[in-house]
Amino acid sequence: MSENLPNKAVFQSYIWTCAKYDFSPYEKRIIYRLIEFAQQWLEGIKIKDHMHKIEPSGCGVNITMPVASILRDEDDHNYAKAKAAFTSLSKKGAEYEDDKIWFYTAIIEHPKIEKGTGIATFHVYDPIWRAALDFTKGFKKYELITAMKFKSVYAMRFYELMSGQAKPLFVPLEGPDGLRERFCLQGKYERVNDFKRYVIDAAKKELDESSPYSFVAKEEKEGKKVIGWTLFPVFFEDREDPALQE
């Protein structure tokens, strides 16, 4: 079963919002929890229970949390989903680039699950931890419970992009800042119609159903070539948690 925790407003570094990676929804939920831990660390909030811990190491931090933290109102027989997510994420990295820097780093290592307690521990590499704490490029604010409940990783990423967005946002299809590279979809959905159907439309469907923030996508062209989309924000005020808007 998923962990029953109160909703929280999470402030995510724009480095993470724009980073290039290909994660499953379960891997993404590990990242959401990691960012939540980083925010508590930054705010100086002391975690008082034995199920949630942040312990600095020489090259990053060690995180302790319940396996249930990454589940979506579901059972995980013999921790199969959690083991697959931690194993896969430990083999992946994240890439970020702007006009001043480029970096690529592994994310976690040495994941372990104590089967009797359902407690997971893993090590987070220092560049990932620092990126979670770095707000110099800006940040996005979103509701943790809303982000955690999406089925599609594309819905998660578009929710991060559109959360709090007041002005139309142009997102290119190709290039270093394009959605294809950002979502690591090179060689997949090569036809524009397929990309829109399986990525943009799929994300919009979930956001329209359960998110405070969604969008209307307007196709942009140079001549006959589609170069991207302008996303016009849509806000569903009745879905926003008023306790988190102070």
Results as ranks from 00 to 15, higher is better:
180 R>H: 05
84 A>C: 10
163 S>G: 04
109 E>W: 11
203 A>P: 01
6 P>D: 08
49 D>K: 08
151 K>D: 11
75 D>M: 13
12 Q>E: 15
241 D>R: 04
22 D>P: 01
150 F>A: 02
246 E>M: 08
178 G>E: 03
36 E>M: 12
8 K>V: 10
27 E>K: 04
129 W>V: 05
168 P>T: 07
131 A>L: 04
100 K>M: 11
10 V>D: 00
111 P>M: 12
100 K>G: 04
81 K>H: 09
115 K>N: 14
59 C>R: 08
192 V>Q: 02
112 K>V: 11
163 S>Y: 00
203 A>Q: 01
207 L>P: 02
236 F>R: 13
45 I>Q: 10
122 F>M: 14
243 A>G: 09
160 E>Q: 12
132 A>G: 08
209 E>T: 08
36 E>C: 13
79 Y>T: 06
116 G>W: 06
232 F>C: 07
226 V>G: 02
132 A>Y: 01
213 Y>N: 01
237 E>A: 15
99 D>M: 11
125 Y>T: 09
58 G>Q: 13
191 R>K: 13
197 R>H: 13
199 V>S: 00
244 L>H: 09
196 K>A: 04
87 T>L: 13
140 K>L: 05
186 Q>T: 10
93 G>D: 06
95 E>I: 07
47 I>T: 06
176 P>L: 07
63 I>F: 12
145 I>W: 03
27 E>M: 04
9 A>S: 14
36 E>K: 05
204 K>W: 04
17 T>A: 06
177 D>K: 08
186 Q>W: 10
78 N>A: 14
1 M>C: 13
42 L>T: 10
175 G>K: 07
5 L>G: 02
243 A>M: 12
46 K>L: 12
64 T>C: 10
52 H>Q: 11
107 I>F: 03
126 D>F: 11
100 K>H: 12
62 N>D: 13
68 A>M: 11
97 E>K: 14
57 S>T: 15
179 L>Y: 03
